[in-house]
Design a binder for these strands. Structure first.
Lengths: 251, 251
DNA sequence: TGTACATCAGTGAACGCGCGTTCACTGATGTAC
DNA sequence: TGTACATCAGTGAACGCGCGTTCACTGATGTAC
């Protein structure tokens, strides 16, 4: 809950504009609170309006429809998680206080994974909105795509930079059969497309594996399909994530 | 849709009992169809009743409440997926037609993973019910736990049997830091508890990693959070799953 | 084999609820002259 | 600085919808004698 008014100098906004921004923020806040309490399916325009003491039709001055509100929540959540991940993945080499810390690529990856997990725990329903089963009757518009890839891009970036700098030391996949040519070509094209030319298909497979495992772990922990498994344990999370990162070749 | 009447000799069931079983089956079928069409949140007792031409209150002769119906669907889905996985994971050594096929532990694991993925694609909403974000307002009763672990147990079984037979050859995790003692102890206790004493903590971590990656991959593919990633590609799935299985030590 | 009673599937009406969205309106805020 | 008009946030009523669950009932099926 940032108090924007005190921060932004309010250049030349009219009272109307300021009120509009503030109420939009309050609506989103209420919507987020309800999302946290009830989940996406329980989010209704009427109850959001109620929370602000408005009449339900007034919300239509701010959002075209329930789906528009949902879309906004999704984009904001992707951006929040993306920003969290980026902050760790792209942290400067070392800071005064953390000079002794390991700031190698491996640590960067593991810390980013931890940050994603922590965010998911802090915002379980928002995480569910992003990575859980789709909200019935809701189709995400194209607008969400750019934000939607931010968290993954933060992770990919770590590997891409390490690969470009020649710092990647992937273990030789001794016994694994070679990738089918078509798949290797597809992965190579994808790497070029996102500006990660130095990432080999084998590394790409390891990376996608690490990435899906990360979200698999978090989802299992969060959605609680693991009543009698050890998942939900930070040490296990670290161990699994570290091993995946090593398989990518991060050091 | 099995036609039970022709199979079961109808030992001594009254007309009432047979009608009850048949209508229960039809209700579940209709519920499953609606689950597939609308998702869990869109499943309603009234529409299920409507589909069978019943009045909504009549459903209460068969299910205590909407939640009871949902629970039944969940248990059935776990059992269906569990049975599918078990059929592959515990298939006899070799059959006449597949004598030339590789029936090693590695192939067993990969085939089981494929079967799970295929089932998920065939039953996307049921998969979502099991492994997606929780249905709002619904709390799964304890009854679901036994069925809920079936799919995982099928996978664990492959590793446990291979380990017990001394067929496991896990690669030495050269650079990975050793597991914290507390975690290692916990994993060892867990292995003993499920009768997989031969599974070492390192192998357990690899296994949990492979398991979570599997469900992560399937969820990403199915829930479509991957608009511009390569996920959704069977060859990639195979490659990733195979590499995880090798990391466990399956051969 | 026939009768009396108990069981139970299905009906239809009702209760009370919440939802998204539209629409004509009032009254305050902003803008152009 | 003052006035006339345009913009727009918020109101309140309404439409039409679907939901889960309860309840007294009818009539067919099953059971005990």
């Amino acid at each position: 809950m940032t108090t924007d008014e005190t921060v932004v100098p309010a250049v030349h906004r009219t009272a109307r504009q300021r009120a509009r921004e503030q109420i939009t923020t309050e609506l989103l806040g209420a919507a987020r609170r309800q999302l946290a309490a009830e989940g996406a399916a329980g989010l209704s325009l009427r109850s959001v309006a109620r929370e602000l003491g408005m009449v339900s039709s007034a919300v239509y001055r701010y959002f075209d429809s329930r789906d528009a509100l949902l879309t906004r929540l999704i984009v904001d959540a992707y951006d929040a998680l993306g920003a969290t991940a980026e902050a760790v993945a792209e942290a400067p080499e070392s800071t005064a206080e953390a000079a002794a810390e390991d700031t190698g690529d491996l640590a960067r990856w593991v810390n980013t994974a931890r940050a994603i997990r922590a965010w998911a725990f802090d915002h379980p329903h928002e995480y569910g909105l992003l990575y859980g089963s789709p909200v019935p009757g809701y189709a995400a518009p194209e607008t969400t795509v750019a934000s939607g890839t931010r968290p993954s891009r933060a992770l990919v970036g770590i590997v891409a930079r390490a690969a470009a700098a020649g710092r990647l030391a992937p273990p030789s996949p001794a016994e694994a059969p070679p990738l089918p040519a078509a798949l290797a070509a597809e992965l190579e094209a994808l790497a070029r497309q996102i500006g990660a030319d130095a990432v080999s298909p084998e590394v790409a497979v390891a990376m996608i594996g690490a990435w899906t495992q990360l979200f698999g772990l978090v989802s299992f922990e969060l959605f609680g399909q693991t009543r009698n498994m050890v998942v939900g344990n930070a040490a296990l999370f670290d161990a699994a994530v570290t091993r995946q990162a090593l398989a990518i070749g991060l050091r």
